[in-house]
Nucleic acid binder design. Structure first.
Length: 623
DNA sequence: CTAGGGTTAG
């Protein structure tokens, strides 16, 4: 093709410059198809002829974009800004959405610009009209992920003003919610959900479900209930997953009765509970079902079978774990055998759960037998399995064995995780071998493991324990410098240490501080303060703490009462002590060994036979 | 949409 020799090109270039812009561009269009055009040449050309629109120009741009001739396109657009150019593209008559999307992405990257929400929305609508949903999804993902502070109302407004196709608007906005959830911004997703109501966008059950699921994960049960109620009000379609998610959220929050109500709701809608529904309920009862939790969990198992829903491996895993944590490993083993009889094959999680239960119960030999069994079944022990054993050894103060196992894992090339480290670090801290604990901390970076809040909590607790308050505070500061936020346990440790030192005022300020930070004080937090005041011989002040915990919706537990009873006994106020003993019984709390010891000691001291209150004594004597 | 490991209190 002799006419495209470099010499001819140059001649043509000079010639075209003297022609009208339009002709020149047409020539360029011919040329660039052969990829010959040197960018500086094009740039010079464009500088000399102000833009003209029209089919030729459109074709040129279209061709450049579709063939990814970015450097040449850059030459052209350098004289106008990418945002204006994008707007020009939107007005092209026969320009397809793919080309605009292509330019959109390239220009953001090449010019380091972020297009406006309106531009995004224009593109989304364009894509929605030709049903290119996956493309919208991935672009929305980028949009949400990179957007620092996205104005949802601007987005809504743009959607309504730029499109009269309500279907497209609904789809785009629905996908926006999913994108927010997928990029870990549930707060934003929730705002979108609210706005969708204001602007009348119809949402799909899929995006609402994923929003619900994200809110459950964050433990925001109030928001879960809001979304659920709104879905009913707005007549969003429901499905089984919607109900299961809400039920699971309520169970996780300990709202078991409410969860039961939702089960009735779903039946009304003609949706029957599935194995997932029952599993969520059973898990809820196992973990937060009060004193008779395992009885209720077991009743649910029977109920599901009766209504024709068959338990699966997960159901058994939940129950086995529940019984283990309830201190009833024997029941767990019975279930383990039962599941095999029903043709369900225990998996790695099943074995790990049982092994952990046995190890926590000090039955390491039995746990070892199970490990052998899992190997026979072709199941590979993983880091969780090993951690259960490390924990078992640590609990038995067999730190040598624990450390040997740890080293073995490392040697085997299995990646040790932060839990393995924490288990061992905690064990060393507990027996006062701080140097060993610190040595492990120093090993963490080498194994590519970062300490977490729990790691620091172990160390902070250990330093308080040996009375090195300065070191504890130093490491607390170090933790916060690393961006790790103190959690409830951190505060419990601090508050407890303060109370033990008699600094109860300071401890209360610490409690206020954790509340300000949005942390929910636990029973342990309040109990530490109750104990602190009692130890100071000031059970009256301890009562104000009890009132505060009740106001916050935390019911005093056995520990709270034990501490109070001991406090009142300690300053000779036996009647008050007895009042609280009766109060705890009225509330259905079962006194434990410690309650019994406190009262017995007190009575003996006073020279009474410890059966003044015969009924109570009989109750206590059972322990 | 449901299941497993470590940390706090008397």
């Amino acid at each position: 093709m002799p006419i495209y020799s470099p010499l001819n090109l140059a001649k043509l270039g000079l010639a075209t410059l003297s022609h009208s812009g339009r002709d020149a561009l047409a020539s360029m269009y011919c040329l660039q198809r052969f990829s010959f055009l040197p960018p500086p040449f094009l740039h010079g050309l464009v500088m000399h002829c102000p833009f003209v629109s029209g089919p030729d120009f459109e074709s040129l741009i279209s061709s450049l974009i579709s063939n990814h001739k970015w450097s040449q396109l850059k030459s052209i657009t350098e004289s106008s800004n990418p945002t204006d150019f994008l707007h020009q593209l939107f007005h092209f008559k026969h320009f397809n959405s793919d080309l605009i999307l292509s330019y959109f992405k390239w220009s953001q990257h090449a010019f380091q610009v972020t297009h406006s929400i309106e531009s995004y929305v224009k593109l989304f609508i364009l894509l929605a009209n030709v049903r290119k949903y996956p493309k919208i999804r991935s672009l929305l993902h980028v949009f949400v992920k990179q957007g620092e502070s996205i104005s949802v109302s601007t987005f809504c407004h743009a959607l309504l003003t730029l499109s009269d196709n309500s279907c497209a608007c609904n789809v785009v906005f629905d996908m926006l919610i999913s994108a927010c959830v997928d990029t870990g911004k549930p707060e934003l997703a929730l705002e979108c959900f609210r706005r969708a109501g204001d602007y009348g966008f119809k949402l799909s059950v899929v995006s609402c479900n994923s929003l619900l699921s994200a809110l459950v994960k964050e433990g925001r049960i109030g928001n879960v209930e809001f979304v659920y109620k709104e879905m009913i009000r707005r007549k969003v379609e429901f499905n089984l997953i919607t109900f299961n998610t809400v039920i699971n959220g309520l169970c996780k929050a300990g709202r078991l009765n409410k969860a039961g109500d939702i089960v009735e709701d779903m039946k009304v809608y003609g949706i029957m509970p599935s194995v997932v529904t029952y599993n969520a309920l059973i898990d809820g009862y196992c973990k937060r079902g009060g004193p008779s939790r395992m009885y209720k969990a077991d009743a649910l198992l029977k109920e599901m079978v009766k209504s024709g829903v068959f338990p699966n491996v997960i159901t058994y895993n939940i129950l086995i774990d529940g019984f283990c944590k309830d201190g009833n490993v024997a029941a767990s083993i019975r279930l383990f055998e039962e599941m095999k009889v029903h043709g369900l094959r225990p998996g790695v999680i099943t074995y790990n759960t049982l092994i952990n239960g046995l190890c926590s119960d000090g039955k390491i030999d039995e746990a070892m037998r199970l490990r052998d069994e899992m190997l026979e079944m072709g199941l590979e022990p993983n880091i969780v399995t090993y951690n259960a054993f490390i924990n078992g050894f640590s609990k038995k103060k067999m730190l040598k064995e624990a450390k040997e196992l740890f080293d073995d894992i490392v040697k085997k090339g299995i990646a040790v995780n932060v839990v393995a480290f924490n288990t061992l670090i905690n064990a060393y801290c507990k027996i006062g071998q701080l140097e060993e604990a610190l040595a492990l901390c120093n090993l963490m970076p080498e194994k590519m493991v970062s300490p977490n809040v729990s790691t620091y909590n172990c160390l902070i607790g250990a330093y308080y324990h040996v009375g090195d308050i300065e070191a504890a505070n130093k490491i607390l500061g170090e933790m916060e410098e690393k961006g790790l936020k103190a959690d409830v346990v951190t505060y419990n440790i601090r508050i407890n240490a303060m109370c033990r030192r008699g600094e109860t005022r300071k401890a209360v300020r610490c409690l206020d501080e954790m509340c300000r930070k949005g942390l929910n004080p636990s029973h342990i937090t309040y109990n530490a303060l109750v104990a602190g005041y009692c130890q100071q011989g000031n059970p009256r002040a301890a009562l104000t703490v009890k009132k505060r915990m009740e106001k916050e919706g935390k019911r005093p537990n056995v520990v709270t009462y034990n501490v109070l009873i001991k406090g009142f006994c300690g300053c000779g106020k036996l009647e008050e002590a007895n009042k609280f003993l009766n109060e705890m019984l009225e509330k259905g709390l079962i006194p434990n060994r410690i309650t019994y010891d406190i009262i017995k000691e007190e009575m003996m001291e006073k020279g009474f036979a410890p059966d003044i209150d015969g009924h109570l004594y009989n109750d206590l004597a059972k322990f």
